[in-house]
Design a protein around this nucleic acid. Structure first.
Lengths: 360, 360
DNA sequence: TTTCGTTGTGAGACCGGTCTCAACCGGGAT
DNA sequence: ATCCCGGTTGAGACCGGTCTCACAACGAAA
């Protein structure tokens, strides 16, 4: 307070004085509430223009209790999936005159908690979160209970009944995997960036992120359907942007029983896998087939172009934002859980299993 | 104000009452200023914990005049260049306990102005902007004059003397183009997403964005150096994410005198060009060579992998943010203009000019 | 002419913090 | 015993808005 670094700005009182009316009246016309006579309104407006008055949103928020902004906590803005979703969110928000405060959790619950704390302290009117862990959601429950509208993006939380927008992860994984099994693949690897606390051992309750779990479930469904046993052992965690990532993917490919097909959980992982496949001197799709979630722009320009699960990412973001905005406006219908459909874009990265070709 | 939607929260006064001290004293320990005896501090802290007190940052900002957040206005978050830069910014900001309010201008000056207005009204402590147009900077000048620290990212503004971080665009373009000219290319196209108001006609003052202008200047330098005439005619604007983009790139390639080499101004444009080249049935690098700015992750996995100008994007973001934070802390050295070096990563997308091969 | 209702305006409380200022306290110097 | 002093505390102003309430002015209805 000592040194207001900004040039002390024009306040309602200043305008009121200039227009020779009371602060209350000036505030009425400037704030656009209550009734004012035409003449006075004009006088105030003129004074405001002359003084170049700009309202202090902070002060306004202070009394109204509404800040006019929502907080968005995503796993990783750099992931094209999230940047596209964020654009969907901001576009929808802007349409309602709301702006977005963005925070990155880096998929770390602690960072997520801290971001939420900060955003709440900033009095955001609502929150959109892609929860990093479905195991640790106390902080989210707390938000919801505090009455702050909360919406979940891309990842559902069974125990948290709030507006949620996801895609049909399980079904998508099922369909994608089927493409692989129908091409005769029996050793199929699933690679995800998610980290696992402890060992998987086929116990899906260990998987903390709902979308990851659903996809794995869909993957296993398809494997089971095709009579593939022990598919659980081919699920690999911890790929993605971490330092360990190359190690994970290479370990996968160097293995004597390496998979003949891989399903990647997002485009960042897929890129890593794609690079690793090249480095190992393997060919797609002759030696190994690849399908990935997210139709990232680059997937269509590789040689061969890659078969993908196309998620309506922008719509996903737009949709949560719209849901949240509706809440802000006072809608109190029971929470919705919207599941958006995905479609598979078949390109050239899936081939017959080399196993099948050699056997007959 | 009628209906505070949030459950009315615990305030300093509540804590004070519970701890049986005055509001002032409670505020002192909660706000961490002034002197308080150990015993009283403990009592207040205990009361705060019991009541689950959380400070209202808005109220705090209100009196201090500092909001603890900075505004960032970028052209397009979806462009990997910007998302990476934004991560650099947020990482640096977080280290200083500052958070980031992100806004998208979509490269539209009006949207940029509006975003800045909103951010200023929200009392951000500082602003990082990638100005969409170097011609219209009145709003930025105003920000700077109002005493709000402002820093420019990726694009310099000669007439605006504030902290600026850019890359050596001109030199980078020169070096990249030289690679092309030295491979014998004489018909070289430069493709950028930037829009031009009016016709170019070789008049670089028409180009509104500094980085775009610098690059074009570098490009022309190299062409001139190689004795190529009329290179100006091979500069193409308006590619990128717009609807017209495919038209622009195709028109370029369908032209009878189509270039034998292309320099793309960013990875989004390059991807568009890459696709178009494929669709025209042309081969890289035999029929046409390609270099692009920004070492986007996909550029290394295409066939062939693409030669790029590698900009230190993350560092760029981190650096502006650090510069800005320094200002916030009261540093009043004269503004710095930092130009970061780029390097060219030569991959496989540049070949000898087919012209040269046929002639001798 | 009195009464009522409507409309426009001003005074001042309030939001939840920060910060100034004065009062109070006990102990050491005088 | 008196004075001074630093440490501690409480009262209350303040930030820049919003909003309640009281009141004045005026025209219409009774």
């Amino acid at each position: 307070m000592k040194r207001p670094p900004k040039a002390s700005s024009i306040t309602v009182s200043d305008v009121a004085r200039q227009a020779k009316v009371s602060k209350a009246t000036a505030a009425r016309v400037l704030g656009g509430y209550g009734r004012v006579s035409k003449t006075v309104r004009a006088a105030v407006l003129e004074a405001a223009k002359a003084l170049d008055y700009r309202p202090n949103e902070l002060a306004r928020s202070m009394t109204t209790g509404r800040s006019g902004s929502i907080g968005v906590v995503v796993g990783d803005i750099e992931n094209p999936f999230f940047s596209l979703a964020v654009r969907g969110i901001s576009d929808a928000a802007r349409l309602s005159g709301i702006n977005v405060i963005l925070a990155n959790s880096g998929e770390q619950v602690e960072a997520e908690k801290s971001a939420i704390r900060v955003l709440m302290a900033k009095q955001v009117d609502g929150l959109i979160v892609t929860p990093a862990q479905s195991g640790e959601i106390a902080h989210l429950v707390e938000v919801a209970q505090s009455g702050c509208p909360l919406a979940l993006l891309d990842r559902a939380l069974p125990d948290l009944d709030v507006d949620t927008v996801t895609v049909d992860d399980r079904d998508a994984a099922l369909r994608a995997t089927r493409i692989l099994t129908r091409a005769g693949h029996t050793r199929i690897g699933y690679v995800t960036a998610a980290e696992l606390s402890g060992d998987f051992c086929g116990n899906e309750s260990r998987i903390n992120t709902s979308s990851v779990r659903e996809r794995i479930l869909g993957f296993l469904d398809a494997c089971r359907e095709a009579g593939i046993e022990g598919a659980e052992r081919n699920i690999h965690f911890g790929a993605g942007r971490s330092d360990r990532s190359p190690a994970v993917t290479h370990a996968l490919l160097d293995h004597p029983e390496r998979p003949t097909a891989i399903l990647a959980s997002d485009s960042v992982v897929a890129l890593e896998v794609f690079k690793a496949i090249r480095e190992c001197g393997l060919r797609i799709p002759q030696d190994i087939s690849l399908i990935t979630f997210h139709d990232a722009d680059w997937t269509s320009v590789t040689t061969p172009p890659i078969t993908v699960v196309d998620q309506p990412v922008y719509a996903l973001g737009k949709c949560v934002a719209e849901l949240l905005v509706r809440r802000l406006k006072g809608d109190d219908r029971p929470p919705e859980r919207i599941v958006m459909p995905t479609r598979i874009i078949e390109r050239m990265s899936v081939g017959q299993s080399p196993d099948r070709q050699t056997v007959p």
